[in-house]
Amino acid sequence: MTALDQSQIDTEITAARDAYAKALADGAAVRHHPSRDYAPYRSSELRHPKHALVEVRDPEAVELSGPVFGVTDVTDLDADLTRQHTGEPIGERITVTGRLLDRDGKPIRGQLVEIWQANASGRYAHQRDQHPAPLDPNFTGVGRCLTGDDGTYRFTTIKPGPYPWRNHTNAWRPAHIHFSLFGTAFTQRLVTQMYFPGDPLFPYDPILQAVTDDSARGRLVATYAHDRSSPEWSLCYRWDIVLDGPAATWIEEGRDG
């Protein structure tokens, strides 16, 4: 593969964004999710389907229900990524909190939220991550919790560092936390990434820019919440998550309580 530089990627990012703006102007629907076929993210080339998705409108579909989790599936320590080892991790201690909602604004209760992230220097505790930045023996970077009755989740962690990757020469990911989310239905399943406000790497990153809608892309960026920061302890970022996709209404009754 020939080495690509950032300017080529920038050109492609702009072209994709212009094409989306034109489609919108011509009456196309707002695109909330990234296109799976997004050339600037090179790994998508052979991993996106060419056929259109087949719509399923069957009210009996199994996918309108989904897996459930409970107190047996998490431990209290899981939500504090700074307390999983004998010592304290290096970096800026933060709390990340928000609500998990469906598109009607209803909270998704008692559901599993999973996160994973790089450490403060931008290194994952994964053997395939060979970025020459230090591993932190006191930080793994994996967390889990269940949402509360109002859909709230909350993690204490360390602000992750940006890291290089090999999409093109001088490719760097903006700092982010990976999130995995379940709704009441399998159709609402979501894996995504949360970003930090004001990161100068945003315009260069093909993964974030794959969300070509400006407003949608903005929804991936957390808000700094000064009123929720803990004095002399940690800064707080707030990020609400809204799950897409239909759910069976009957599920709600069976699962409350």
């Binding site: 790994s43 604004g105 949608a216 799950l243």
Partner: peptide
Amino acid sequence: LAPTPSQTVGPF
């Protein structure tokens, strides 16, 4: 409400 966009699960 507008949904939160998807992002790749990545390699890690």
